[in-house]
Amino acid sequence: MKFGVVVFPGTWSDRDMRLALSGVEGAEAIPLWHKERDLNGVDCVILPGGFSYGDYLRTGAIARFSPVLESVVEFAAQGGLVLGSCNGFQVLCEAGLLPGALVRNANLEFRCQWQHIVCERDDTPFTQGIRTGEVLRIPISHGEGNYVADPAALSRLEQNRQVVFRYCDSRGLVEAEANPNGSQHNIAGIVNERGNVLGMMPHPERCADADLGGVDGLRLFAAILRTPAGARMA
């Protein structure tokens, strides 16, 4: 399965992402430069973390108008799998592929730490094999991960079960104390209604090697690989 890892000026997690994927059997990862429109036939697009275009104006605001994003929007509309992590999540919200926005952490801190998140559903292409209610430990690293949406959008998200990950404590309790950034409803990751676009603040590529403290990130990549080719572009 071929992954395309998008690289904007200021992206910093693209190499980690490709390195993590290189350890996954059956996965091949190529970089996709922001000026290119050709997605080179990838099965899954990854928008990695970083500070695309310096995060000028707003996080993800400029990246959203890059040539590669035009193709990614089209790819997503056809049912292609898209995973945005950290800055990638911010770009997906700016591009309108996901509802809501990510604003400055309520505590005004840049949080770089291990974080527990609980999986809210095991029936997305990104979470197959992870049990609903299972707690994962995945690093976060952001200053603007505070998820906000207007009340109507938020209730739609909950009604449609679009919240995939929530910040929690080590036992899986979703509490205010376990929320690192003030996100509404402790939201750490959401999918679009169709379920083929996931945005999450945590960095799965940073826990894909036991020597680096954890391998929970590999669970997401394994899930994507489990998605049948037909379903990837359904």
């Binding site: 604003v103 400055r104 952490n105 309520a106 505590n107 505070n146 906000v148 207007d150 003030g182």
Partner: peptide, 14 residues
Amino acid sequence: TPKPVINDPQGATV
């Protein structure tokens, strides 16, 4: 400007 319903922690700090 941030919408009135949006928390502005920077503003609160200032």
